[in-house]
Protein backbone atom coordinates (compact mmCIF):
# COMPACT_ATOMS: atom_id res chain seq x y z
CA UNK A 1 0.00 0.00 0.00
CA UNK A 2 1.31 3.42 -0.96
CA UNK A 3 1.58 6.62 1.01
CA UNK A 4 -1.95 7.71 0.18
CA UNK A 5 -3.98 4.54 -0.26
CA UNK A 6 -7.21 4.84 -2.20
CA UNK A 7 -10.55 4.41 -0.47
CA UNK A 8 -10.96 0.91 -1.95
CA UNK A 9 -7.63 -0.10 -0.44
CA UNK A 10 -8.62 1.36 2.91
CA UNK A 11 -11.88 -0.57 2.80
CA UNK A 12 -10.02 -3.79 2.16
CA UNK A 13 -7.70 -2.90 5.02
CA UNK A 14 -10.66 -2.40 7.34
CA UNK A 15 -11.92 -5.84 6.39
CA UNK A 16 -8.51 -7.35 7.22
CA UNK A 17 -8.45 -5.51 10.51
CA UNK A 18 -11.90 -6.83 11.43
CA UNK A 19 -10.66 -10.36 10.72
CA UNK A 20 -7.63 -9.66 12.91
CA UNK A 21 -9.84 -8.41 15.74
CA UNK A 22 -12.12 -11.44 15.88
CA UNK A 23 -9.16 -13.83 15.55
CA UNK A 24 -7.30 -12.03 18.35
CA UNK A 25 -10.21 -12.10 20.75
CA UNK A 26 -10.93 -15.72 19.85
CA UNK A 27 -7.30 -16.64 20.51
CA UNK A 28 -6.96 -14.48 23.61
CA UNK A 29 -10.02 -15.97 25.26
CA UNK A 30 -11.49 -12.56 26.05
CA UNK A 31 -11.63 -9.01 24.77
CA UNK A 32 -13.89 -6.21 23.68
CA UNK A 33 -15.24 -7.00 20.21
CA UNK A 34 -18.07 -4.43 20.11
CA UNK A 35 -16.09 -1.25 20.67
CA UNK A 36 -13.11 -2.53 18.70
CA UNK A 37 -15.19 -3.24 15.60
CA UNK A 38 -16.94 0.13 15.83
CA UNK A 39 -13.68 2.12 15.80
CA UNK A 40 -12.00 0.37 12.84
CA UNK A 41 -12.67 2.98 10.14
CA UNK A 42 -11.72 5.86 12.48
CA UNK A 43 -8.33 4.35 13.34
CA UNK A 44 -7.66 3.11 9.81
CA UNK A 45 -8.36 6.50 8.24
CA UNK A 46 -6.14 8.25 10.78
CA UNK A 47 -3.19 5.85 10.71
CA UNK A 48 -3.19 5.14 6.97
CA UNK A 49 -4.11 8.54 5.55
CA UNK A 50 -4.09 11.37 8.07
CA UNK A 51 -1.28 11.01 10.58
CA UNK A 52 2.34 11.86 9.88
CA UNK A 53 4.11 8.85 11.35
CA UNK A 54 7.03 6.60 10.59
CA UNK A 55 6.47 2.95 11.56
CA UNK A 56 10.22 2.37 11.36
CA UNK A 57 10.85 5.21 13.78
CA UNK A 58 7.91 5.19 16.17
CA UNK A 59 9.41 7.86 18.44
CA UNK A 60 10.27 10.26 15.59
CA UNK A 61 10.04 13.75 17.05
CA UNK A 62 7.90 15.19 14.29
CA UNK A 63 5.19 12.55 14.45
CA UNK A 64 1.51 13.14 15.05
CA UNK A 65 0.25 11.37 18.13
CA UNK A 66 -2.92 9.45 18.88
CA UNK A 67 -4.27 8.49 22.28
CA UNK A 68 -6.78 5.65 22.34
CA UNK A 69 -8.51 6.80 25.49
CA UNK A 70 -11.01 3.94 25.15
CA UNK A 71 -8.24 1.47 25.90
CA UNK A 72 -10.53 -1.55 25.83
CA UNK A 73 -10.57 -1.24 22.03
CA UNK A 74 -6.94 -2.36 22.13
CA UNK A 75 -7.46 -5.17 19.61
CA UNK A 76 -8.42 -2.61 16.96
CA UNK A 77 -5.38 -0.43 17.68
CA UNK A 78 -2.99 -3.41 17.72
CA UNK A 79 -4.32 -4.66 14.39
CA UNK A 80 -4.02 -1.19 12.83
CA UNK A 81 -0.48 -0.69 14.14
CA UNK A 82 0.60 -4.14 12.94
CA UNK A 83 -0.94 -3.64 9.49
CA UNK A 84 0.68 -0.20 9.33
CA UNK A 85 4.06 -1.82 9.90
CA UNK A 86 4.89 -1.00 13.51
CA UNK A 87 5.31 -4.67 14.40
CA UNK A 88 4.74 -8.06 12.73
CA UNK A 89 1.12 -9.04 12.08
CA UNK A 90 1.96 -12.54 13.46
CA UNK A 91 2.32 -10.98 16.94
CA UNK A 92 -1.41 -10.35 16.98
CA UNK A 93 -1.89 -14.05 17.74
CA UNK A 94 -0.46 -13.47 21.21
CA UNK A 95 -3.25 -11.06 22.21
CA UNK A 96 -3.94 -11.37 25.94
CA UNK A 97 -1.86 -14.52 26.29
CA UNK A 98 0.35 -14.79 29.38
CA UNK A 99 3.61 -12.95 28.71
CA UNK A 100 2.27 -11.07 25.69
CA UNK A 101 3.15 -7.52 24.75
CA UNK A 102 -0.46 -7.11 23.62
CA UNK A 103 -2.30 -6.68 26.91
CA UNK A 104 -6.08 -6.48 26.87
CA UNK A 105 -5.69 -2.91 28.12
CA UNK A 106 -2.79 -1.06 26.62
CA UNK A 107 0.74 -0.75 28.01
CA UNK A 108 2.61 1.87 25.95
CA UNK A 109 5.98 0.43 26.92
CA UNK A 110 5.25 -2.94 25.35
CA UNK A 111 3.90 -1.86 21.97
CA UNK A 112 5.73 0.30 19.41
CA UNK A 113 3.52 3.11 18.13
CA UNK A 114 1.42 3.42 21.26
CA UNK A 115 1.73 6.85 22.85
CA UNK A 116 -0.09 6.40 26.16
CA UNK A 117 -1.16 3.45 28.28
CA UNK A 118 -4.92 3.33 28.66
CA UNK A 119 -7.75 1.30 30.10
CA UNK A 120 -8.95 3.44 32.98
CA UNK A 121 -11.54 5.51 31.16
CA UNK A 122 -11.91 9.27 31.06
CA UNK A 123 -8.26 10.22 31.28
CA UNK A 124 -7.09 10.36 27.67
CA UNK A 125 -8.28 13.84 26.78
CA UNK A 126 -6.40 15.42 29.69
CA UNK A 127 -3.20 13.74 28.53
CA UNK A 128 -3.90 14.97 25.00
CA UNK A 129 -4.28 18.53 26.30
CA UNK A 130 -0.89 18.23 28.01
CA UNK A 131 0.71 16.95 24.80
CA UNK A 132 -0.79 19.74 22.72
CA UNK A 133 0.41 22.34 25.25
CA UNK A 134 3.94 20.89 25.08
CA UNK A 135 3.91 20.98 21.28
CA UNK A 136 2.84 24.59 21.28
CA UNK A 137 5.47 25.51 23.86
CA UNK A 138 8.18 23.79 21.83
CA UNK A 139 6.89 25.21 18.52
CA UNK A 140 6.48 21.69 17.18
CA UNK A 141 4.06 21.52 14.30
CA UNK A 142 2.33 18.26 15.06
CA UNK A 143 -1.15 17.12 15.89
CA UNK A 144 -2.72 15.21 18.76
CA UNK A 145 -5.72 12.95 18.16
CA UNK A 146 -7.70 11.53 21.07
CA UNK A 147 -10.20 8.75 20.38
CA UNK A 148 -12.91 8.66 23.03
CA UNK A 149 -15.83 6.36 23.64
CA UNK A 150 -19.26 7.87 24.09
CA UNK A 151 -19.30 6.28 27.54
CA UNK A 152 -16.31 8.44 28.41
CA UNK A 153 -18.50 11.47 27.78
CA UNK A 154 -20.14 10.49 31.08
CA UNK A 155 -16.83 10.96 32.95
CA UNK A 156 -16.20 14.29 34.66
CA UNK A 157 -12.52 14.41 33.74
CA UNK A 158 -13.37 14.36 30.03
CA UNK A 159 -15.22 17.65 30.49
CA UNK A 160 -12.48 19.14 32.68
CA UNK A 161 -10.14 18.46 29.79
CA UNK A 162 -12.61 19.74 27.20
CA UNK A 163 -12.92 22.99 29.12
CA UNK A 164 -9.13 23.35 29.34
CA UNK A 165 -8.54 22.58 25.65
CA UNK A 166 -10.93 25.35 24.61
CA UNK A 167 -9.55 27.74 27.23
CA UNK A 168 -6.06 27.27 25.81
CA UNK A 169 -7.30 27.38 22.21
CA UNK A 170 -5.67 24.10 21.27
CA UNK A 171 -6.29 23.98 17.55
CA UNK A 172 -3.90 21.07 17.04
CA UNK A 173 -5.99 18.86 19.31
CA UNK A 174 -8.74 16.79 17.77
CA UNK A 175 -11.08 14.45 19.62
CA UNK A 176 -13.01 11.71 17.83
CA UNK A 177 -15.93 10.20 19.74
CA UNK A 178 -16.74 6.63 18.73
CA UNK A 179 -20.46 7.13 19.25
CA UNK A 180 -21.69 3.53 19.15
CA UNK A 181 -24.40 4.32 21.67
CA UNK A 182 -23.90 1.27 23.88
CA UNK A 183 -21.94 0.70 27.06
CA UNK A 184 -21.21 -2.24 29.35
CA UNK A 185 -24.51 -2.25 31.21
CA UNK A 186 -26.90 -1.18 28.47
CA UNK A 187 -27.57 1.63 26.04
CA UNK A 188 -26.05 5.01 26.80
CA UNK A 189 -29.53 6.51 26.70
CA UNK A 190 -30.89 4.22 29.41
CA UNK A 191 -27.79 4.14 31.66
CA UNK A 192 -26.85 7.83 31.64
CA UNK A 193 -27.85 9.89 28.67
CA UNK A 194 -25.28 12.20 27.09
CA UNK A 195 -27.42 13.93 24.51
CA UNK A 196 -27.44 16.51 23.13
CA UNK A 197 -23.80 15.56 22.68
CA UNK A 198 -22.93 18.07 19.95
CA UNK A 199 -24.46 20.91 21.98
CA UNK A 200 -22.39 19.93 25.01
CA UNK A 201 -19.11 20.03 23.09
CA UNK A 202 -20.11 23.26 21.37
CA UNK A 203 -20.98 24.82 24.71
CA UNK A 204 -17.53 23.82 25.94
CA UNK A 205 -16.00 25.84 23.12
CA UNK A 206 -15.15 23.15 20.58
CA UNK A 207 -15.75 22.99 16.86
CA UNK A 208 -18.17 20.09 16.35
CA UNK A 209 -18.95 17.85 13.39
CA UNK A 210 -21.11 14.74 13.16
CA UNK A 211 -20.44 12.03 10.62
CA UNK A 212 -21.04 8.38 9.81
CA UNK A 213 -18.06 6.82 11.54
CA UNK A 214 -17.92 3.91 9.10
CA UNK A 215 -17.70 6.09 5.99
CA UNK A 216 -14.00 6.49 5.26
CA UNK A 217 -14.51 9.35 2.82
CA UNK A 218 -16.56 11.26 5.35
CA UNK A 219 -13.91 10.73 8.02
CA UNK A 220 -11.14 11.99 5.76
CA UNK A 221 -13.19 14.97 4.54
CA UNK A 222 -14.27 16.03 7.98
CA UNK A 223 -10.76 15.80 9.44
CA UNK A 224 -9.51 18.04 6.64
CA UNK A 225 -12.38 20.43 7.19
CA UNK A 226 -11.83 20.56 10.96
CA UNK A 227 -8.14 21.25 10.50
CA UNK A 228 -8.96 24.33 8.48
CA UNK A 229 -10.32 25.81 11.71
CA UNK A 230 -7.18 26.04 13.86
CA UNK A 231 -8.36 28.56 16.47
CA UNK A 232 -10.06 26.02 18.69
CA UNK A 233 -10.05 22.30 19.41
CA UNK A 234 -12.20 20.17 17.16
CA UNK A 235 -14.35 17.17 17.94
CA UNK A 236 -15.80 14.71 15.49
CA UNK A 237 -18.83 12.79 16.67
CA UNK A 238 -18.50 9.62 14.63
CA UNK A 239 -21.78 7.75 14.78
CA UNK A 240 -20.96 4.07 14.61
CA UNK A 241 -22.45 0.63 15.10
CA UNK A 242 -21.10 -1.35 18.00
CA UNK A 243 -19.93 -4.73 16.73
CA UNK A 244 -19.94 -3.40 13.13
CA UNK A 245 -19.54 -6.06 10.45
CA UNK A 246 -20.62 -9.11 12.44
CA UNK A 247 -24.40 -9.36 12.36
CA UNK A 248 -24.83 -11.18 15.66
CA UNK A 249 -22.60 -8.65 17.46
CA UNK A 250 -24.07 -5.49 15.94
CA UNK A 251 -25.94 -3.26 18.39
CA UNK A 252 -25.74 -5.97 21.01
CA UNK A 253 -24.92 -4.93 24.57
CA UNK A 254 -23.33 -8.23 25.74
CA UNK A 255 -20.74 -8.05 22.94
CA UNK A 256 -19.10 -5.07 24.62
CA UNK A 257 -16.86 -7.55 26.40
CA UNK A 258 -17.22 -11.14 25.36
CA UNK A 259 -15.08 -14.12 24.34
CA UNK A 260 -15.46 -15.56 20.84
CA UNK A 261 -15.80 -19.35 20.59
CA UNK A 262 -14.83 -21.50 17.60
CA UNK A 263 -18.27 -21.49 16.01
CA UNK A 264 -18.70 -17.75 16.54
CA UNK A 265 -15.32 -17.19 14.92
CA UNK A 266 -16.26 -19.33 11.91
CA UNK A 267 -19.49 -17.36 11.45
CA UNK A 268 -17.73 -14.03 11.90
CA UNK A 269 -15.03 -14.80 9.35
CA UNK A 270 -17.64 -16.13 6.94
CA UNK A 271 -19.60 -12.90 7.18
CA UNK A 272 -16.50 -10.79 6.74
CA UNK A 273 -15.44 -12.83 3.70
CA UNK A 274 -18.85 -12.46 2.10
CA UNK A 275 -18.82 -8.72 2.72
CA UNK A 276 -15.33 -8.50 1.21
CA UNK A 277 -16.51 -10.35 -1.91
CA UNK A 278 -19.38 -7.89 -2.33
CA UNK A 279 -16.93 -5.05 -1.91
CA UNK A 280 -14.78 -6.31 -4.79
CA UNK A 281 -17.74 -7.13 -7.03
CA UNK A 282 -18.98 -4.22 -9.15
Amino acid sequence: MGETPAIAELKAMCADIRRDIVRMIHAGGSGHPGGSLSVVEILTALYFRVMRIDPHNPTWDGRDRLILSKGHASSALYAVLARRGFFPVENLRTFNAPGTTLQKHIDMHRVPGVEVSSGSLGQGLSVGVGMALADRLDLRDRRVFVVLSDGECQAGQTWEAAMAAAHYGLGKLMALVDHNRLQTDGTIAEIMGISPLEDKWRAFGWGVRRIDGHDLEQILDVVREAEAEPAKPQVIIAVTVKGKGISYMENSVPWHSHPIDDEQLRLALQELDEAAKEMVAP
Binding site: S126, V127, Q157, A161, A164
Partner: peptide, 16 residues
Amino acid sequence: AEANMVGIATGLALSG
Protein backbone atom coordinates in the same frame (compact mmCIF):
# COMPACT_ATOMS: atom_id res chain seq x y z
CA ALA B 1 -9.76 20.30 38.39
CA GLU B 2 -7.08 18.24 40.08
CA ALA B 3 -7.62 15.11 37.99
CA ASN B 4 -7.22 17.18 34.86
CA MET B 5 -4.13 18.82 36.35
CA VAL B 6 -2.36 15.47 36.77
CA GLY B 7 -3.59 14.25 33.38
CA ILE B 8 -2.26 17.37 31.65
CA ALA B 9 1.00 17.02 33.56
CA THR B 10 1.23 13.45 32.25
CA GLY B 11 0.79 14.66 28.67
CA LEU B 12 3.48 17.30 29.19
CA ALA B 13 5.76 14.73 30.81
CA LEU B 14 5.30 12.36 27.85
CA SER B 15 6.49 15.22 25.65
CA GLY B 16 9.91 15.73 27.19
